[in-house]
Design a protein around this nucleic acid. Structure first.
Length: 217
DNA sequence: CACATGATCGCCT
DNA sequence: GGCGATCATGTGG
């Protein structure tokens, strides 16, 4: 058995197989991701994050995100303009993926926003699989990556170059969106209280137990 | 339901 | 050397 950190291209969960085209999904344009990070974080609630693996598509509907606002945001890896080998993908053009490894065992996936050199991104925190998938299979950023088999091997990938990772949306979808402070960033001073977490209030797959002031069980 | 804790390791100071 | 954009499991109310 390989150690976890050696696993770089994992198999997605079989329950996530789906067909993007039969669902009437379309892809975003580059300009969509080059806009304000908060807008992108809100608007990709309800979008489908998809990975092609061995000629099949696996995907899940995003139900929870967080915005990370670059150099002015003490919770962001790009705080004060910091650039390291790990966070370098944050500075790619909007529409790329930034994946990092935390707590010695989990991966977290972000969609880069704004233009190259800015360093902002949206963390994908939770999603729902297609019908039939276990309700809480992707109910957390680490679980989301595990279920889709995403690791740092996918960092730097472009969601808009016809590759194996993409983001789809359906034009007419409307979602009841809740807002709260971000999870797990208590160290970040006043930025810890900024209302930058967005979630589908009607989804049972939202991570943790706190679902905002209107939280439901 | 609300905490508390252990697991585990790459990254940065 | 310390700690983290997490998760599962445990305890107690």
């Amino acid at each position: 058995m390989p150690r976890q950190s050696d696993a770089t291209n994992l198999v997605p969960d079989a329950s996530l197989v789906f067909d993007p085209h039969s669902l009437g999904l379309t892809e975003y344009t580059r300009d969509f991701f080059r806009r304000g990070t908060i807008s992108v974080a809100r608007q990709i609630i309800g979008a489908w994050f998809a990975r092609r693996y061995q000629n099949r598509w696996y995907g899940a509907r995003i139900v929870e995100t967080e915005a990370y606002l670059g150099s002015s945001d003490a919770a962001a890896h790009s705080w004060r303009g910091r650039r390291t080998p790990r966070n370098e993908p944050m500075y790619l053009d909007g529409g790329h993926l930034y994946v990092f490894f935390v707590y010695g065992m989990h991966y977290c996936a972000n969609v880069v926003t704004q233009r190259a050199g800015i360093g902002e991104a949206v963390l994908l925190r939770a999603a729902e699989g297609p019908e039939g998938a276990p309700a809480k299979l992707l109910s957390g950023p680490g679980k989301l990556c595990a279920a889709l088999g995403i690791t740092v091997a996918s960092s730097r990938e472009d969601l808009l170059s016809g590759g194996n990772l993409r983001l789809f949306h359906r034009k007419s979808d409307s979602v009841n969106i809740g807002v709260s402070k971000r999870i797990g960033v208590a160290y970040a001073g006043e930025a810890a209280d900024w209302p930058l977490r967005f979630f589908d209030m009607d989804s049972p797959a939202v991570s943790g137990s706190a679902r905002g002031s209107l939280g439901r069980k």
